[in-house]
Simulated assay, not measured.
Amino acid sequence: MEDQLEYDILQQIKPDELLQLRDLYKINWPTYSPIYNHIDMAHTWITKNNEEIKFYSVNGYFDDGTVIFISNLECDKIKLTYYTLEKSNSRLYDGLMKTKRIDWNKQICLDTIYRDQLPLSFEIAKAQHQQFYSLAIGSCWWLPKEKAAQFEIKIPNHTFVGPLSLEHAEKIYRSWTYNGHRSVEYVASLIKNNNCFGIFHENDRTLMAWVLLREFGVLGILQTDEKYKRRGYATVVTKALCKKIAENNADSICYINVENTASKKLFESLGFKAIDYYAWMKMKPNVDTCG
């Protein structure tokens, strides 16, 4: 299959080129910090953990930051994420419209699409005879590493904070509100490859609350077990992960659905600032026009 796509408009960016791509997004900090974190995390997964992650440029050129990330979620679904610094979005449009790497007869999940690329996304959907069936809007929250480094973490009595292990993946997956979109193997991959923290009871090591660092380089899957809510555990594990991220010389980022007022309140109390808005969108072939 890859041989047939040798001359496709979308060409894979080599792992040793990803840091060059990443550094294009240092401008106007923290506006593009989530994109910087995503590419940086992908480079780590590829080079240190041997994960197969592919980013594509349009015609082998990415000096304007134009990049498309394609992954298969299931046999009938494709996930797309794309970024660019080019204001017209024309190169993104060309890449998405002309590539043979995307099967538009499948369901498409557009993940973390920023405001500047929303009009493009609707144009692409119309041109490819896709119809949207799900749309969620969220905000991107940012905390500089200097603030995170100053966090004081007060561990509640009879508890301790520590890294998650693979044995916790099943419980975290079962408790996750959005587990229908992913698998327990996905949660396990985050625990395996990234810094992820939980707060445990000191006697029997019961996991009571947790937060993971996701493949986009952002905090996520923050949750407290129902039996242990309203004890401040979510704040404790969030501070612990933010401090760890700061030790690695990175800022902390999280995405929060606009309807999730509890999470917005928590992250705002920790000093996070909303810096942009984004969308998660799902679309499928329009049977009335494509066939």
Rank of each mutant, 00 (worst) to 15 (best):
M1G: 09
Q4C: 12
L5D: 15
L5I: 10
Y7P: 01
Q12A: 12
K14D: 12
E17N: 08
L18T: 08
P30V: 00
Y32C: 02
Y32W: 14
S33E: 15
P34D: 09
Y36F: 15
N37T: 11
D40I: 02
H43I: 03
I46N: 10
T47G: 09
K48L: 07
E51V: 02
E52N: 11
E52T: 07
I53Y: 09
I53H: 01
I53Q: 03
I53V: 07
K54C: 15
S57G: 06
V58R: 01
V58W: 02
G60V: 04
G60N: 04
D63A: 11
D64S: 04
D64T: 10
T66L: 05
S71T: 11
N72R: 09
E74H: 02
L80Q: 10
L80D: 02
Y82H: 10
Y83V: 05
Y93E: 13
M97H: 05
M97A: 09
K100W: 08
D103R: 11
D103E: 12
I108Q: 09
Y114I: 03
D116M: 00
Q117F: 00
L118Y: 14
L120E: 05
L120P: 10
L120T: 08
S121G: 00
E123V: 08
A125V: 00
K126P: 01
Q128N: 06
Q128T: 01
H129F: 09
H129D: 14
Q130P: 04
F132Q: 08
A136L: 12
G138Y: 06
W142T: 11
E146P: 07
K147H: 10
Q150W: 00
E152R: 07
E152W: 01
I153E: 02
I155D: 04
P156A: 03
H158I: 02
H158A: 14
T159K: 13
F160Q: 09
F160A: 05
V161D: 06
G162Q: 03
G162S: 12
P163Q: 10
P163A: 12
E167A: 15
H168G: 11
A169C: 05
E170T: 09
E170N: 15
I172L: 04
N179Y: 01
S183W: 04
K192L: 04
I199T: 08
F200A: 04
W210L: 14
F216M: 15
G220T: 03
I221C: 13
K229I: 07
R230L: 03
R231H: 15
G232P: 12
G232V: 06
A240K: 14
C242K: 08
C242Y: 07
K243A: 02
I245P: 15
N249G: 05
I253K: 07
C254M: 11
I256S: 13
N257M: 02
V258R: 10
E259R: 04
S263P: 09
K264A: 14
L270I: 08
I275S: 14
Y277N: 14
K282M: 12
K282P: 01
K284V: 11
N286D: 15
T289P: 00
